[in-house]
């Protein structure tokens, strides 16, 4: 048994669904006086516990609204769980929102340093890897052009190149990446495959059982925020097949 890379311990996430967002004082007082402020509680995740070892590739299966994205956001640290804890060993790179933190007025070069520091890289490290990032992103001389003039494909290429410059300990993938054109997609897939081969722990979210079977060795199934199956992918697959029938 390898070392545990990620422990999700009894995590629950509650949202208050208010029919309208009250965001100014006047409305708040009026509604409070009328006692109209009521919240519908909604548990997006309820008592979810699992752990994975270093080098595991975990598939997260579930229908729409099962809580997959919420779980990923809790693991990435964007949401703080209402109950429970997540223990992470090492650096997590979520390939969910490429280029979160890009500034449109900044040039590609400046954004490498900005987004790189969002991901927790040091300036020195980014400087040493700068050439490599530019080369991988295939942006060439566009690197000195402000980002607002980039196409969306160029932005995600740049985002991917920065995020994957160092091998993360835990990689979070939502569906199969579709970055840029066919050629770049091939290149980025190869890069991810190589990371997996090197022993990076992977969390992979998908609707497709085929993909999960191909990539992962372990799997969990979420249904209405609850964990209903957890184990090796061969054991979990039949359960999921039953659900989607």
């Amino acid at each position: 048994m390898g070392k545990e890379a990620l422990i999700v311990d009894n995590v629950s996430m509650k949202f208050n669904l208010s029919s309208e967002k009250v965001d100014n004082l006047k409305e708040y007082f009026i509604k409070a006086l009328k006692r109209e402020i009521s919240y519908d509680e909604f548990w997006a995740l309820k008592n979810v516990s699992f752990s994975i070892n270093k080098g595991d590739r975990l598939g997260i299966l579930g229908l729409n609204g099962a809580g997959k994205s919420t779980l990923l956001k809790v693991i990435a640290g964007v949401f703080k769980p209402t109950e429970g804890t997540v223990i992470k060993k090492g650096r997590i790179v979520p390939l969910l929102e490429l280029g979160a933190g890009f500034d449109m007025q900044y040039t590609g070069k400046e954004n490498i340093f900005l987004y790189g520091s969002v991901l927790g890289f040091s300036k020195k490290y980014l400087e040493s890897k700068y050439e490599e990032i530019v080369a991988f992103s295939e942006l060439g001389r566009f690197i000195d052009v402000p980002l607002k003039n980039y196409s969306s494909g160029m932005k995600s290429k740049l985002g991917f190149s920065i995020a994957t410059i160092a091998e993360p300990d835990i990689l979070i993938l939502d569906e199969v990446l579709s970055v840029g054109d066919a050629k770049f997609r091939k290149k980025s897939e190869a890069k991810i495959m190589q990371m997996m081969a090197d022993g990076t722990t992977v969390l992979f979210v998908s609707h497709s059982l085929e993909q999960v079977k191909r990539i992962c060795n372990k799997a969990i199934i979420l249904e209405h925020g609850k964990l209903i199956a957890n184990g090796l992918v061969e054991e979990v697959a039949p359960v999921y097949e039953k659900i989607i029938e």
Binding site: Q105, Y106, E110, F113, L114, S117, V118, G120, S122, K123
Partner: peptide, 20 residues
């Protein structure tokens, strides 16, 4: 301490973009 570079980058961004 882990995020000190980000703080630096955010400060730099503010200064750079103010008079760009």
């Amino acid at each position: 301490w882990q995020h000190r570079y980000l703080l630096g980058e955010l400060v730099k961004k503010g200064i750079k973009l103010k008079y760009r």
